[in-house]
Design a protein around this nucleic acid. Sequence first.
DNA 1: CGCAATCGTCTCTTATAGTGGACATTATCA
DNA 2: TGATAATGTCCACTATAAGAGACGATTGCG
Lengths: 197, 197
Amino acid sequence: MSTIRDDCGKASRLQKDPGGAISRRIRIERESRGWSLSDLAEQSGVSKAMISKIERAEASPTATVLGRLSGAFGLPLSVLLALAEREEECLSLHDAQPLWADPETGYTRRAVSPPGAKVELIEVFLPAGVRIPYPAAAFAFQHQQIWVISGALDFTEGSTLHQLQEGDCLMLGPPADCVFSNPHNAAARYLVALTRR
Amino acid sequence: MSTIRDDCGKASRLQKDPGGAISRRIRIERESRGWSLSDLAEQSGVSKAMISKIERAEASPTATVLGRLSGAFGLPLSVLLALAEREEECLSLHDAQPLWADPETGYTRRAVSPPGAKVELIEVFLPAGVRIPYPAAAFAFQHQQIWVISGALDFTEGSTLHQLQEGDCLMLGPPADCVFSNPHNAAARYLVALTRR
DNA sequence: CGCAATCGTCTCTTATAGTGGACATTATCA
DNA sequence: TGATAATGTCCACTATAAGAGACGATTGCG
């Protein structure tokens, strides 16, 4: 059992660099107003070279320039930052998604949904020939569906076998012992959607 | 008629540097937790030398270090900034208070209260021998009091003369022609408290 | 087509944010 | 009272944010 992206010890108190979210937010505010870099530079008094770097997250703006930029947008600085944070907690970027991989089999689970979402989406990669059993006791969900993105999947729910093909979607019934298995010679990719209890 | 602190032209869109408010806020958050500079430095990963500069507004922190500091406080960055802004709009620093001075007489009015306050406090400096008449039409207040801070003041309300000494406080009645005058040989300093209509 | 205008990025330089360590000052205690 | 530890500031140095202008790419227009 290993977790990805775990902060160790003291670092756990450290907040992750807000640079990415801020840079995206600033670009959104600028483009949604139809402004070019030069326009915003003139309005804010910040050089367009600097704004370009900030939007591409190549520089971390100082409080001073953040104040000038938010002023140009007509927003209080705290609101600009709040918008950035909101986006951050609603948008889960692919490279930031928690990932768990079994080095033995190549089985891979990726938590696609941002934390706190009501419906959790999990992308699973199941290599050819791999078999993953799930005891009924592991089910802490209210509702669960499986949708095959590519390849094919044999899914055993209790005593019934479902042979799922690409594009098929199965809604699970009450908790039962389950087995995900891929007896074919091509890898399978599927999505699990679930609501936690 | 002249106004102090008027931004000219394009600069009117520029927001004033949030550095002062941020620096005060950070010091408050740190001290209210009983943390030393070293403590916060350890918690946040920002050098204590830098924190010292930030708190004394000698440096404008980057988004990166602001993120680390707010993380150490356990606050979202936007909340930290919102607290700073709130303080900014509730606290009116002496040197930032709008001031009007009559170059001829030396009569001086200073708006002490932050903008938006329900009760407006005005500090007045009335040099010796100066006389300032106020027509009743100029009254757009619901309520008004005059408190003499130092020196003495002859205040005429309609036809009645009030000879106010240091420490005296007068509540005004319905609108009437008024005169502030200082017939003594020492300057007078008094406070006017009023609620706008 | 070609010219001009506009856009975002890149390069170079300067200003300053950020760090580690020394320092003066002030509590704390033997 | 002297030793020790803690606190905040100052200093020298490094990393990087910020500015001025050049550059290639794209667009629009005659």
